[in-house]
């Protein structure tokens, strides 16, 4: 049996088990999702008021509305929360018990990510649906399944990208005592640069070149733009290309850092 197939089987089993385990907390997940959707709704109302008051934004009301309605879904679908846990595994030496198994510890993190995400999205989708219905008159809905497919692909790439960044920062715990400050800094930076706070289209002109090409745009904003915005076919292709490029580059980097870390870990022991 090839390693890939075996790993996929392990992953499937672990994910299924984790879904069963985590579904005990579905009440808590639901409340978490209600909380998560609060800030996008606040932003949505603020920007609609600004437009109604004659603020001359580079984007119209339909863009703003669609953007914020979809935002919490995409943010959740691409999110990852393993930095802290991974750092703890490394620091407290719990990694050792995983290193004797024929499956990478990362597999368990992927399983955890997938299972919790499934449950959280199940809780989130009805809420998005209600929002969509309330604002149905000012939502951009792309015609045809083409855009939706690209949207889905872009979300998957975004999710891999976020996971990879998480892995990179968590791996630093092989060499650093405390990565929590770093992880927190990254979260704060990411919230602005990913478009989770304000649509990147509203960023000032002087920052355009940087804003449009930095990696965080491709973790949240870009997938949302595919549905909400008016990206041309060419912009779409270029965007997907850059996104895939970041996934490959950061993926290789994370892989190198991770194996270097594991070597350092085995050498010293913990």
């Amino acid at each position: 049996m090839s390693t890939v197939v075996r790993n996929l089987r392990v992953l499937r089993r672990m994910t299924a088990a984790q879904i069963v385990g985590a579904s005990i907390y579905r009440g808590a997940w639901t409340i978490f999702m209600v909380a998560n959707i609060c800030v996008p709704i606040i932003s949505l109302l603020i920007w609609r008021t600004a437009i109604a008051n004659g603020a001359r934004l580079p984007i119209d009301e339909r863009y703003v509305t669609t953007y914020f309605v979809l935002l919490s879904f995409v943010t959740m679908a691409t999110s990852s929360w393993m930095t802290g846990f991974l750092a703890e595994y490394i620091r407290l030496g719990r990694l050792s018990s995983w290193m004797v198994r024929p499956a990478s510890v990362l597999l368990s993190f992927v399983a955890n990510n997938l299972s919790e995400k499934v449950l959280k999205l199940i809780a989130l989708v009805p809420m998005i649906g209600v929002l969509w219905w309330i604002f149905r008159d000012s939502m951009n809905i792309p015609a045809g399944p083409g855009r939706w497919t690209v949207f889905a692909v872009s979300i998957v790439l975004g999710a891999i990208l976020v996971f990879t960044i998480d892995l990179l920062i968590g791996s630093l715990a092989f060499w650093m005592d405390d990565v929590t400050a770093l992880a927190q800094a990254r979260l704060i930076i990411a919230s602005v640069l990913s478009g989770a706070v304000v649509p990147l289209a509203l960023m000032p002109d002087w920052s355009r070149g940087f804003i449009d090409n930095q990696p965080f745009r491709f973790t949240v904003s870009f997938p949302v733009e595919i549905v909400a915005g008016n990206l041309s076919g060419q912009e779409l292709l270029v965007g997907l290309g850059i996104q895939a490029g970041y996934v490959v580059v950061l993926g290789i980097l994370a892989r190198l850092v991770w194996s270097a870390g594991l070597r350092a870990y085995s050498a010293v022991g913990a």
Binding site: A50, N53, G54, R56, A181, I188, V197, V198
Partner: peptide, 29 residues
């Protein structure tokens, strides 16, 4: 130190939407 720093960054972050907003309008409501 961490609390202080995080607090300052969060404060700055909280002001970002307002600064952007008033880049597009002199007055809102």
């Amino acid at each position: 130190a961490t609390t202080l720093l995080v607090g300052l960054v969060e404060l700055g972050l909280g002001v970002v939407p307002i600064l952007l907003l008033f880049g597009f309008a002199q007055e809102v409501q």
